[in-house]
Amino acid sequence: MSTVSVDLPPYAKVVFRYGRPVVLLTALLMSIPGEIHLAEVAGWESVSMFGLFTLNVAWGMPVCVSVYAACSAVIADVAKRLSLPNRKSAQVGAVAALALALTAQDVSHWIRADYMGTSWILVGAVSAIPPIVAFHMLHMAAAPESTASEVEVEDVADDEFEADDDSAKGPRRKGKPGRPGLTEEEVNAAIESLEEAGKDVTPETLGKALGRAPRTARRYLKVIKRAEIPAAETSQAGTFQLSI
């Protein structure tokens, strides 16, 4: 997989870097009044905290709804990318959190506009939001402490090149007929010839030198590069530690 560098125009860089957090913050701020109102409708009010000060606990509803939805979306994306054990729960939670945030806003504005009134069902549903959110966040927190993930990769160094002795000749891979593979010496010779000619060793140039497709040449380059890794780093039989 090749990496492409894209030079964005200045205005696009500003939008990409600062636009997203501004939009997110604005959306969260606009969600606060409706969610606080919904909490107040359900019966949350100001309470005395140990006689020291008074706290309006209804202000916690935006955290349980909008902020929870934002957190769930991020956790679901990270869990999917790293294949964490809780990725299914995180994805389901992200969808449920978005539905919860949308419903909370709609219901609050319907009540304010006198399209509907409160009921015991609505009060019960709103009252259940904080414990449900707390339970799901604790469940998603059961992810591994480290974000490192071990990935098993096929060790192709042994079967990518054609063996030198005649006794090992024959089909290298079942079900994949075609031209016989090249030996490691042939690939190294082609690389040396490119370097002597002052050419960059890329999948395209190596492919032309070997008479192979760039994709095949890229695979050979990966094998050569892996062969140069010290034995101490490759002693686990093709198991690599990928740290994100």
Rank of each mutant, 00 (worst) to 15 (best):
190 A>E: 06
193 S>M: 07
167 S>W: 13
89 S>G: 14
202 T>E: 06
91 Q>T: 14
112 R>S: 13
66 S>M: 06
86 N>D: 10
107 V>G: 04
118 T>I: 01
38 L>K: 03
176 K>V: 14
179 R>W: 09
32 I>F: 06
198 G>A: 05
145 E>Q: 11
65 V>H: 02
176 K>R: 15
122 L>N: 11
74 V>R: 05
119 S>C: 12
208 K>T: 06
62 P>D: 07
110 W>C: 14
89 S>Y: 02
157 A>C: 06
209 A>Q: 11
215 R>Q: 12
151 V>E: 05
67 V>C: 05
219 R>P: 03
153 V>T: 12
90 A>R: 03
115 Y>G: 00
102 L>I: 07
158 D>I: 07
50 F>H: 13
139 H>M: 12
230 P>W: 05
135 F>R: 14
104 A>F: 02
200 D>L: 02
72 S>L: 11
204 E>P: 01
130 P>F: 10
84 L>M: 09
197 A>C: 03
238 G>I: 06
109 H>T: 08
80 K>P: 01
73 A>Q: 10
96 A>N: 13
113 A>E: 04
111 I>D: 00
11 Y>R: 08
201 V>M: 00
159 D>S: 13
105 Q>V: 13
204 E>T: 04
188 N>Q: 10
214 P>A: 11
137 M>N: 08
243 S>G: 05
77 D>I: 08
191 I>N: 00
71 C>R: 14
7 D>P: 00
191 I>L: 00
242 L>E: 15
151 V>K: 11
67 V>K: 09
111 I>T: 01
16 F>M: 03
239 T>M: 13
227 A>G: 10
228 E>G: 04
137 M>P: 01
180 P>I: 09
13 K>H: 01
27 A>D: 11
185 E>V: 12
129 I>N: 10
197 A>H: 01
25 L>K: 07
196 E>H: 11
231 A>K: 12
135 F>I: 07
10 P>K: 04
117 G>V: 08
215 R>V: 09
179 R>S: 09
115 Y>H: 07
55 L>N: 05
231 A>R: 10
228 E>D: 09
122 L>K: 13
223 V>A: 13
13 K>G: 00
229 I>H: 02
56 N>T: 03
185 E>F: 04
92 V>Y: 13
215 R>K: 15
238 G>R: 08
42 A>S: 12
242 L>N: 11
226 R>L: 12
236 Q>I: 10
131 P>R: 15
7 D>K: 09
15 V>Q: 08
55 L>F: 09
